[in-house]
Design a protein around this nucleic acid. Structure first.
Lengths: 346, 346
DNA sequence: ATCTGGGCCGCAATCGTTTGCGTTGCCAGG
DNA sequence: CCTGGCAACGCAAACGATTGCGGCCCAGAT
């Protein structure tokens, strides 16, 4: 078999279409664009469309962006795509954007503010029309600066303190409350909380919700029962549980800040020969994929990730349509899915 | 708190820099670009750089792309980002691209050829300089067409029959062989294979490797022991195992085409009250995240995903550098990680 | 017959860079 | 003093699309 001949043929341009249809490129442009099509005679429009079709004309988005300073593209700022929490959100976003011909540029920040800044810079220079941010921290100078500069954004999953931005998040309050209530119903009275990082809005929201729930239900309200994780990660979750255990704080159940933290607990169980749920009940948060196959299957509060993403996409499209629109935020209500990591206290 | 005043100020352009430095934009352009900097006097170059610095000039990639027909961007064609197999690959790719100032446009195809075609079309119109393809099927008309057109591509994870393209894949042969050998050593003689889709190169490579291994080790070589899945998914894996079981084919272990298929088996274990590994040993392929926390932890052959990605990135950069370079392909050697889903036959 | 106005379309500028080519000024060599 | 050559830089034309403006033509009104 011989190597195929490689011929690089440049794509047809608007001039080609115009020439073939016997009109000026300007007319061709107007004919091709549904917005401006009424400006040209129906017959010529047809001719142009046919010509475009026949030579397989595809508009050059680069040239279009240069002229119009728009791009039909939005930026998507994610801490780490490797975290199974985010892919479904991304899908949700992409799907609603696709409906109106938009697409998304995905970038990872690794939770590194410097990296985040350069990534956002590169997104902006690519003329993205808006940003969907999944990396918000409560104090987030970059985001307030961007907001001042008038860049359109929506926050997903987390928020920024004191910044009036459209956002879509899960109802942490409701979720945590369901988790604690579930454990209380099983008979637990000393429940610990492995809190997420307190620089993130979800971290504090869930911690606060936890304290409220505990108090409302009349359970043991011991400050020692709350320990904070530095990151939303397994290793941090494991660390936190170790600290809790090593401090000798008695407890029979823990509600973790999220699933990753909960899974970190599993590591400690393995280390120390503890059994779950016999020795300790655990409930997570998020319901990431494959939890049902864990050992034991993790009880968790399920948040609709895909919808988180699709709502965020819709919100961003809204503010692109009408930048003056008052920031609308949506709160998605989670649900408890109980599996086998929770049981009455041994 | 009052709403911040929103002022949208257009970014400084090359003309601004030139004006401030008192030179022509062309000179400024040359001064800014390390490649052409020798063409301008060192002093003026310094002036230009200082001016650019002082007003925070950032070149406009859109305009640059339009002029140069390059974009420092490559396309990344993924079947589904939600599959935990791919995020690490993506990270590997992104990391090596970032080293040389490139970045990646990620698109999902959902395994839908039509969608794939439009996605690729949109990538190409965005002037991507090459494609990294993770969706290859053995027969893949689109890819041969693109190759004929001289589009630079590298294949990752899967290949297409009879197409001389750089690719990076795991050594399926070695991996499967290790899996089968491991099971044989445990005493299994009737081992089944839940094969991946035979339209994909990995599907057939692993199935073939399986047959070879079985024969080499003198195990039962019964065609009924091989059943094919339509997709690389849990549900298909479950279906396949059900078919195998319902056909009454006797076996004590199965090597799955990949981890997802293996996890599908867990579902039918739950359905039918079977225990793993007591009733049936299972080994997967890929070592996707969180397998160690499954019930039982899944024995699997581990392939270095991150390296899969980073190698693919390097390969693509190579062919961008020198399109005439002879296609180099790399084969990554996997390793067996045995956990608790395999044991001697009951 | 002239004027008006709308429908349709072409002209040309523009978006921000890059780059082939020409021009300038300077210096060395003849 | 003239020429050749080189270094440094400016000019202007691209890249491919969009769009304000103005011109043309023709119908209908006056």
């Amino acid at each position: 078999m011989t190597a195929p001949k490689i011929v690089r043929v440049s794509a047809p341009t608007l001039r080609d279409v115009a020439q073939m249809a016997g009109v000026h490129p300007a007319t061709a442009s107007r004919a091709l664009n549904p917005q401006t099509r009424p400006l040209v005679n129906a017959d010529t429009a047809r001719k142009v469309l046919r010509a475009a079709e026949s030579i397989g004309y595809q508009p050059n988005p680069i040239a279009r962006s240069l002229k119009t300073a728009r791009s039909s593209t939005v930026g998507l700022v994610i801490p780490d795509l490797t975290n199974p929490l985010f892919p479904p959100i991304v899908r949700g976003i992409e799907d609603v954007l696709a409906l109106v011909g938009y697409s998304a540029w995905i970038v990872n920040t690794d939770n590194d503010p410097a990296r985040e800044e350069t990534q956002v810079e590169s997104l902006r220079s690519r003329q993205v029309e808006g940003l969907i941010i999944a990396t918000a921290r409560r104090e987030h100078p970059l985001l307030v600066r961007l907001h001042r500069m008038g860049v359109r954004m929506v926050l997903v999953n987390r928020r920024v303190d004191g910044l009036e931005l459209p956002s879509v998040t899960a109802d942490d309050d409701a979720g945590i409350s369901m988790a604690v209530t579930h454990l209380a119903a099983l008979g637990h009275t000393r429940i610990a909380h492995l809190a997420g990082p307190q620089q993130t809005s979800t971290g504090v929201a869930r911690a606060r919700a936890f304290r409220h729930a505990v108090r409302d239900l009349g359970l043991d309200d011991d400050p020692a029962l709350i320990v904070e994780c530095g990151y939303w990660s397994e290793t941090e979750g494991a660390q936190a549980l170790r600290r809790l255990l090593d401090a000798g704080t008695r407890c029979t159940a823990v509600v973790a800040g999220n699933d990753l933290i909960a899974l970190g607990c599993y590591d400690v169980f393995a280390e120390r020969g503890m059994r779950c749920p016999d020795d300790l009940s655990v409930v997570g948060f998020n319901d990431m994929p494959f939890l049902d196959k864990m050992n034991p299957p993790l009880t968790t509060v399920s948040v609709p990730h895909y919808e988180l993403g699709s709502e965020a996409g819709r919100l961003l499209l809204d503010t692109i349509d009408d930048p003056e629109r008052v920031p609308r935020s949506v709160l998605l209500t989670p649900s408890l899915v109980v599996r086998a990591s929770t049981a009455p206290p041994g």
